[in-house]
């Protein structure tokens, strides 16, 4: 055996398929999109795609932490719908007292954040303290929130007061230098998420727990608290996403946020995060989100394939991503 003190410092290994696979897929999609429709790379289309991706994207960043720590959250879609409904109710109710203005919007935002925190905390507590499977807990809360929003809307639609809606709308449609707020918030979330995952104790602990929670426990990692924090973070980000989403349509109904959880989970997995936990990549999740939204966008812009087949193509991509992940396991 060689002298141990002269071991080489880690060198950059060639990126494996799990790393470059999603990037290649994204590049391929952009090329196909441009070839099929010259307007594909137009500023308007790019910002539109990004703004629409922002909701799922912000949630998917949170989901990356949950999955990396070996958990899962199926409730985010209905949680978003419930928070949206709650936010609209609170804002409408406070309208006579506060009048249309910044304080009212801030109240709505605070409602969304607090509700998101609380919902995430509830999921997390049930999973960590009572030791119930994450799948079961969040399957249950998914049903509960979906049913609550239907009940709040009395089976119909909850709408933001009309004048309030026009006041609040810039949060979705406005922005700085032509970049809309959802894109900015999404970008900030991604940058912070990437730093937290790769450079902070929290991210390292998430990966350790997802990799082997016994080892983490024996290494004095507070496994329960870190797990709980992943769900709280996700809940908070669902709240943030909802704040961006409500001004878009100004309403919430039983079908708000439908299947968002699956899109978020799919984006995380396509991005190279391991479904069983132990390894997560926030920037990969962003690639995953973009791949999923670009497929829809391309189908809408061209008439080569029916847009109704969007789901089928997305499904095939997800399965393909997992197969590639398995082949390139050594790279993870």
């Amino acid at each position: 055996m060689s002298d141990t003190t002269t071991l080489p410092r880690p060198r950059r290994a060639l990126p494996s398929m799990t790393v470059i696979g999603p990037v290649l897929a994204l590049v391929l999609l952009v090329i196909i999109g441009t070839a099929l429709n010259p307007n594909f790379l137009a500023w308007a289309n790019v910002t539109n795609v990004l703004a629409r991706s922002a909701f799922i994207g912000i949630i998917a960043v949170g989901m990356t932490f949950v999955i990396t720590a070996g958990g899962l959250d199926l409730s985010v879609g209905s949680m978003a719908a419930f928070i949206a409904g709650l936010m609209i109710l609170v804002m409408n109710a406070a309208l006579p007292a506060l009048g249309v203005g910044v304080p009212l919007v801030l109240l709505g935002m605070a409602t969304a954040l607090v509700a998101g925190l609380a919902a995430g905390f509830l999921n997390g507590i049930l999973i960590t303290r009572l030791g119930i499977e994450a799948f079961i807990v969040t399957l249950g809360s998914m049903g509960i929130y979906r049913s609550l929003v239907t009940w709040l809307a009395d089976g119909g639609t909850l709408s933001l007061d009309f004048t309030l809606r026009s006041f609040y709308q810039p949060v979705y449609y406005g922005g700085i230098l032509g970049v809309s707020w959802p894109i900015i918030v999404f970008a900030v979330t991604v940058v912070l998420g990437e730093i937290a995952m790769r450079r902070m104790v929290f991210g390292r602990h998430c990966a350790a727990i997802g990799s082997n929670d016994q080892v983490a426990r024996y290494s004095s990692v507070n496994v329960g608290r870190v797990r709980l924090m992943t769900y709280v973070l996700l809940g908070l980000l669902v709240g943030v996403a909802t704040i961006m989403y409500v001004p878009r349509l100004g309403s919430a109904s039983a079908s708000t946020g439908l299947l968002w959880e699956l899109e978020a989970i799919a984006a995380v997995i396509i991005g190279g995060t391991v479904l069983k936990g132990g390894f997560g990549r926030v920037w990969g999740t962003v690639i995953g989100v973009l791949i999923l939204s670009l497929i829809g966008n391309i189908l809408n812009l061209t008439d080569l394939v029916s847009p109704y087949l969007n789901g089928a193509i997305q499904g095939a991509i997800i399965i393909l991503a997992v197969i590639l992940q398995r082949e390139g396991k050594a790279g993870a």
Binding site: A207, A208, S211, N212, Q214, V215, R217, Y218, G278, F279, A332
Partner: peptide, 8 residues
């Protein structure tokens, strides 16, 4: 199983 993260 309790000591090391074997894949890390």
């Amino acid at each position: 199983t309790r000591g090391l993260l074997l894949t890390k």
